[in-house]
């Protein structure tokens, strides 16, 4: 099966500024992939390149094996929900659905109207009158009803309240359960990513810092606490993501393939958020945040 998204040396330049530079990554098919990273890391640019709304300056990108935006067949395979889930304010929900049916050959009117009914939305309602959460649900409905193979969502829930966010993610999870669908979701909210995603990519300054299955990442990363040690005295199969030395103690965020045990050391699990923070602060050159905070203080 072709990857959902495959970028090789991908770059996009605006004037003198590179929004994305030399980005090489693979998003596997059949997964719900969370894409996380700092503002300005190139996430939105990458997703816009994937939909074909932008053309690359350098390198190549393939989406489901094809070139983004290369024709009706390719367009039809990809659903997109843009940042802050824009809709047409002056159009009613019914207008949105008519428009979706006309514009998309694979449109499933049954799915669309069933979702609007389940959301208890009035089809005659204008989008401008909807709440933020309802607008997001409408945008998701539009993207799902075109029956894409890949659904791309760019920070869809950032400005929603907790309940609207939860309902949006539930709708997304239900869709994934019902249709065979790959999903890429960019978000700053690791707690949300943890809830719906089974694959994670941390992107910092156009580079993949870590990518993998969420369960595998959680199983292979450990927080170790033990006697103060220099890094070169530690087992060679521990990849040290973060280290901090305080008093007699050394704390490490470690990636290791096999089981980790060392007498005199305590091993703890790492939450997905701390794992993400560990890689982000490693990339930022060891700022004060992240799992381990003492070293920089």
């Amino acid at each position: 099966m072709a990857a959902a998204l495959e970028a090789d040396g991908l770059g996009k330049q605006y004037g003198r500024k590179w929004a994305l530079a030399d980005c090489t990554l693979t998003v596997p098919a059949g997964r719900v992939t969370g894409l996380v990273g700092p503002n300005g890391a190139g996430k939105t640019t990458l997703l816009n390149l994937a939909t074909g709304m932008l053309a690359p300056t350098t390198g190549s990108i393939r989406v489901l094996g094809g070139v983004p935006g290369s024709g009706p067949a390719q367009l039809r395979k990809v659903g997109f929900v843009a940042q802050d889930t824009p809709t047409y304010a002056a159009l009613s929900i019914a207008d949105h659905l008519h428009f979706g049916a006309a514009a998309n050959p694979g449109w499933d009117a049954g799915i669309a109207s069933a979702r609007i009914r389940a959301l208890r939305l009035d089809p005659a309602q204008k989008a401008a009158k909807l709440s933020g959460g309802q607008r997001a649900q409408l945008a998701l409905t539009m993207a799902i009803a075109k029956q894409p193979e890949l659904l791309i969502l760019d920070e869809p829930v950032a400005s929603l309240d907790p309940l609207a966010r939860r309902e949006f993610l539930q709708a997304l999870a239900e869709t994934v359960a019902e249709q065979e669908l790959s999903v890429v979701l960019s978000s700053h909210l690791v707690a949300d990513i943890e809830r719906v995603c089974d694959y994670l990519i941390v992107l910092v300054a156009s580079r993949v810092r870590i990518a993998g299955e969420v369960t595998e990442l959680l199983a292979s990363h450990h927080l170790l606490t033990g006697p103060r040690s220099e890094e070169d005295s530690l087992p060679g199969d521990w990849e040290i993501i973060q280290a901090s030395h305080v008093g007699r103690q050394t704390s490490l965020l470690v990636r290791a393939a096999g089981p980790v045990k060392k007498p005199g050391w305590a091993v703890d699990k790492v939450s997905l958020e701390d794992l993400v923070l560990g890689y982000m602060s490693q990339a930022a050159g060891g700022t004060t945040a992240g799992l381990l905070t003492g070293a920089a203080r």
């Binding site: 943890e194 606490t225 033990g226 008093g247 103690q249 005199g264 699990k269 939450s271």
Partner: peptide, 27 residues
């Protein structure tokens, strides 16, 4: 350190880590 998703109250996690450091001789 703190694992907010572990279900263990944060203050108990801190206590546990002090005890653990005492047992390991780190404190």
């Amino acid at each position: 350190h703190l694992d907010t998703r572990s279900g263990v109250a944060p203050y108990l996690q801190l206590i546990h880590q002090v005890r653990q450091a005492l047992r390991l001789g780190l404190l």
